[in-house]
């Protein structure tokens, strides 16, 4: 459904963020992309969303190239990015502003109810906790019923408890109309809880190091032995991937 073929991304400052990247994502799949900072995982998400364009290669959605943001693709950022001058419901309505007002209202309250914030209509963003604000951001991305939902480290700014709460909640939301989901994260546990397939990236330049499809039963138990085994295995991969970044494996960076 979504295909990334031979994609390079070079920034104007000369930095090669991605090199020769190939990735195919099936409809309804949940894919997690993990990697240390600077491995190009956020860049990749920006290319898929159409916010940026690749220097070479193509990003294709259902056969047509993505060169600019498209209505079938929703994006949730690391921060909620709510407009502080709009109420919660007005923020969510951003995603469906072209619909008739009556339908907007119905869809907004339906989506807010789904994320558990139906009672917050008319409230200002400043009145929300971090977790609630990110729920509103999820609602804003979902209200237009995108076929693809992109998430850029969506829960990384939240405390551990709220984070696992929202991870479970995200799976419930996914179950409504099963969009294809691509999640970028540096949290292995998050990737394993959510994703069907996990792609580990490595930096300099950004490329895929390894791809795994953990055969873990759902719902996934964060303390299950098999889950933990996968977690450690991927942590090892991630560790190797980021050590490569120093460019010299015989001299791992050691702080005294």
């Amino acid at each position: 459904m979504l295909s990334i073929s031979n994609v390079d991304k070079r920034y104007p400052n000369g930095l090669l963020a991605l090199a020769g990247l190939d990735l195919a994502v099936a409809e309804g799949e949940i894919l997690a992309i993990v990697g240390g900072s600077g491995c190009g995982k956020s860049t990749l998400l920006r290319l898929i969303s159409g916010l940026d364009t690749p220097t070479a290669g193509t990003v294709g959605l259902e056969g047509t190239p993505v060169r600019a943001p498209r209505p079938e693709i929703g994006l949730v950022f690391q921060e909620p990015r709510l407009m502080p001058w709009l109420t919660i419901d007005q923020n969510v309505a951003f995603g469906i502003r072209h619909l008739p007002v009556v339908e907007q209202k119905a869809r907004v309250s339906e989506t807010l109810a789904r994320v558990g914030l139906a009672s917050h209509v008319g409230h200002w963003p400043r009145e929300l906790s971090g977790g609630q604000a990110q729920r509103v951001a999820l609602a804003r991305a979902l209200v237009g019923r995108p076929k693809v939902l992109l998430l850029d480290e969506p829960f990384s700014a939240l405390d551990a408890l709220t984070r696992s709460d929202l991870q479970d909640h995200l799976l419930e939301l996914w179950a409504y109309d099963r969009p294809t989901m691509i999640l970028v994260t540096h949290d292995i546990e998050e990737a394993l809880v959510l994703a069907d397939r996990v792609v580990v990236m490595q930096p300099d330049p950004g490329r895929v190091r390894v791809e795994v499809t953990p055969p873990l039963a759902r719902p996934r138990d964060r303390l299950d032995t098999e889950f933990l085994e996968w977690k450690y295995r991927l942590l090892g991969e991630l560790d190797h991937a980021s050590r490569r970044k120093t460019g010299d494996e015989t001299f791992p960076a050691v702080a005294i």
Binding site: L51, P69, G74, R81, M83, W85, F94
Partner: peptide
């Protein structure tokens, strides 16, 4: 820039970008 990107994701026209984001943000 982060708020402007939200506008871009929702394919705001120049006019919408001005009236819905730049104007309230600079008020």
């Amino acid at each position: 820039r982060k708020l402007v990107e939200v506008g871009r994701i929702f394919r705001f026209s120049h006019r919408e970008m001005i009236t819905r984001i730049l104007l309230p943000a600079t008020l």
